[in-house]
């Protein structure tokens, strides 16, 4: 399978929490406009790796990194990188839906408003509508855009959060177990959505759900104890993994 152009590359990446090594020598290339799943047992560092791609780990005390993560050939861990700009390019959706206690409209418009050039009202309305449509939630919320987003159901909230991330037109979207707090129907909707979004965006998704990885992703990385065990096309990983560990994990012998 062709991997397309590779705009996101992780090179010899280590991460420490104080003295504990959480990620060890991770190197992988994340293909553009594909869905890449990161799987692995709890505590293997998959969320940590995901959060390293937009430097969200910096909020935690005692985190230290080595190695490089390249976005369009630029190392995002260089000293003079503008983290705010980086995060506009690399958006994020979290495990639990976390809309702001604001109206649906304000939630989606938030990222755009925080930018340097805030567009006029009509343009902003366009952006909000487009993003909500892209996130497949427009029809459900179009009549209540100015009501609090907290009133929506969990699945709806999560799609609003996805719309919110899409509104700033990122290149990459990181998703940290985006459906793990949702019921099966809401999960199916999110998965469908992810499947469609890959036409426009590079998506990296952390999941503990093997079937989900198989359903939505083109590539899969298997992490264990902070090390990358195997990385390749999902189909191959699921049917004919190169590593014995991967095989044992996906067949459910541990994890």
């Amino acid at each position: 399978m062709q991997t397309g152009t590779d705009r996101l590359e992780i090179k010899g990446f280590n991460l420490y929490y104080h003295r504990t090594k959480a990620l060890e020598d991770i190197s992988m290339t994340i293909p553009e406009k594909r869905v890449t799943a990161i799987i692995g047992p709890s505590g293997c560092g998959k969320s940590t790796l995901l959060r390293s791609i937009n430097r969200m780990n910096e909020m935690i005390d005692g985190v230290k990194v080595e190695g490089q993560i390249l976005l369009d050939g630029e190392d995002i861990y260089q000293k003079d990188i503008d983290v705010v700009e980086l995060r506009r390019k690399v958006g994020m959706v979290f495990q639990r839906p976390n809309p702001f206690p604001k109206s649906i409209f304000e939630n989606v418009a938030f990222g755009v408003r925080m930018g340097d050039n805030v567009p006029a009202k009509e343009k902003l309305e366009e952006v909000v509508e487009r993003s909500l449509k892209e996130a497949a939630i427009w029809d459900e919320v179009k009549d209540r855009l100015h009501r609090s987003a907290m009133e929506l159901s969990g699945g709806q909230q999560q799609r609003v959060c996805i719309a919110r991330a899409l509104a700033v037109e990122p290149e990459v979207i990181l998703m940290d177990e985006p459906a793990s707090a949702l019921d099966p129907i809401a999960t199916a909707k999110i998965e469908e959505l992810i499947f469609r979004l890959k036409e426009k965006y590079t998506i990296v998704i952390v999941t503990h759900n093997m079937q989900q990885a198989a359903r939505v992703s083109g590539f899969t990385a298997f992490l264990m104890l902070g090390k990358l065990v195997e990385f390749g096309p999902t189909e191959k990983m699921m049917t004919n993994p190169a590593s014995k560990l991967t095989e044992e994990y996906i067949t459910g012998r541990f994890g």
Partner: peptide, 22 residues
Amino acid sequence: PRSFREAALGLGASPWQTAVKV
């Protein structure tokens, strides 16, 4: 909740914007 701060920072808000707007 910390999740609000993370969401705002993740959308490219500066720490000041996060504090004042969220």
